[in-house]
Amino acid sequence: MLDERKAEVLRVLVEEYISSGEPVSSRAILECSKLDVSPATIRNDLSALDREGLAIQPHTSAGRVPTSRGYRYYVDHLTPKRLRAATRERIQGFFSTVHQELGRLLKSTSELVADISQYPAIVTGPGMAGEHVHGVSLVPLGGHAVLMVLVSDAGRVGKEVLTLEHLVEVAVVEEAERVLGGMLHGRLLAGAVGLRDEVPSDLSTAIREVVEAGIDMVGLSEDAARDVYVGGTSQMAALWEDLSTVHRVLGMLEREALVMGIMSSAPPGTVIQIGDELPMDESVDLAMISTPYQVGGVAAGRIGVLGPMRMDYSRTISIVEEVSDNLADSLGS
C-alpha cells in the first residue's frame, strides 16, 4: 500500500502517460500534481515506485512509464469520471430510437461503444440460459462419441459432443434420448444442470452414462449458443504502434471461443483485466474493461472494451456502464 503522496505521484504518472504516450518526467509530475514538494522528493518517489514494480524507466535519460502492476494499482483506486451530458444524451437517444431484432441491436451496440470510446468493443449475446428445453436429439458418431442437439422454445439450437467411457450402441443412444427428452422437456436450461439426482435408478450403466453426460453438457450448451459482436476493429492500428500487437489482438478477436471464455468467466460487476491477467498465449500490451447487462433483472451478457494498457480507464468504465444500463432498459421494455 502506497502512502498518500506516492499514490498521487503514481496517479499523475499514469494519467499523463495515458494522455501523451511518452515517458513522464519528474518535472511534469510536479507541474501536474498539487504536491507542494521539491523535484528531488518526486524523483525519490519515482525511484520507490520503480522498486515496487509499479513504474519503469525505459532509458536512463527518459522519464517513467507505468507497469501493468502500476496500472492495476491505479484502477483499484480509481473513481470513474461522470460522462458529459452530450455523451449520455447520445447513448440514451440511440436506445430510445433504435428498433431492431436482438442480434442487430447487439451488433449496433458494439459499434456505438466503439465509436464513443474510440476502442474496439465486444458485446456477447444472452445465450440460452433463460429459455426452456423444447427437444433433445442424440446422434451416434461412432466409437465413444455422441452428438447432443438441444433445441430451445425460442428455436435456438445448441450442439455438444459427448465423449463417453464405453463404446456406444445405437439402442443405448435411442433409450438415453428418450430418457433425456422426458427429463429436460419444458425445463429452464439454467436449472437443468441439477437434474443428475433425478436420473432413474433402474437404468443400465451404459444408458445412465449417456444420460448423465447429456445433463452435464446442458450448461455448455447455454454458452455455446451465445453470439459475439465486435465493433471498431478499424481503430486498432491507431491504438498500437507495434503492428505485431495489432495482429495478436486481431487473432484473439477471431477466436470466438476465447473471447467468450474471457467474458463469461468474468465475476459479477465491472471487471478490469490488464496485461497478464488476460489469458493470452504470450504477454501483450492489452487491457479489457467489461460489465454485465441484464434482462429482467438477470445478467444476460457482457459489454467489453479492448485497448492498450494506457487506455483511458476512467472514461471507458463510465461508457460501458452507461451503455449497459440503457441496453438493459431497452431489452426490458
Rank of each mutant, 00 (worst) to 15 (best):
I91Y: 03
I274M: 01
E52N: 05
Y119R: 00
S201Q: 14
T109G: 01
G127S: 08
P80A: 14
Q273D: 12
L105G: 02
H134W: 14
L239E: 01
E254G: 07
V295D: 02
R72I: 14
L220R: 13
E321C: 03
A190C: 09
L167K: 04
L30N: 02
E22S: 13
D281P: 01
S68F: 15
S108L: 15
F94P: 00
V298W: 09
R104L: 12
L30Y: 06
K81T: 14
E282G: 02
P200M: 11
G181M: 09
G304I: 05
C32S: 15
V24L: 13
V37Y: 03
A55C: 06
H134A: 14
E101T: 12
G93D: 02
R302L: 08
S283P: 00
G194N: 10
A213N: 01
A299M: 12
G155A: 10
A28L: 13
E277G: 03
L147F: 07
G21P: 01
M252Y: 08
P268D: 11
G142A: 09
L141D: 07
V139N: 11
A206M: 09
S264I: 07
A206Y: 09
P23W: 06
L54K: 00
A114W: 00
G301S: 07
S20I: 10
L189W: 04
L141M: 15
L250V: 11
A28Y: 05
P39V: 12
D276A: 15
A28S: 15
V246F: 08
E198G: 04
A129Q: 03
H59V: 07
R43K: 13
S244H: 10
P58D: 13
K34N: 14
V259Y: 07
S38G: 05
T124V: 06
V230A: 11
V298H: 11
R255E: 15
T87C: 10
P23G: 04
Y293L: 06
A86M: 15
P39Y: 12
P268I: 04
A328E: 08
V179R: 01
D36Q: 09
S33Q: 11
I122E: 02
G182C: 04
G63H: 01
L10R: 01
R196C: 10
N44L: 14
G53D: 03
E8A: 11
D325Q: 04
I317F: 08
Q57Y: 03
L250E: 12
G269H: 03
G155R: 03
H166T: 10
L2F: 11
L105W: 04
R226C: 08
L106F: 05
M260E: 07
L162I: 10
L278A: 11
G251K: 07
R82K: 13
V136W: 02
A7W: 02
A129T: 00
D197K: 15
T87A: 13
E131N: 05
K107V: 06
H185D: 09
L49D: 00
S19Y: 10
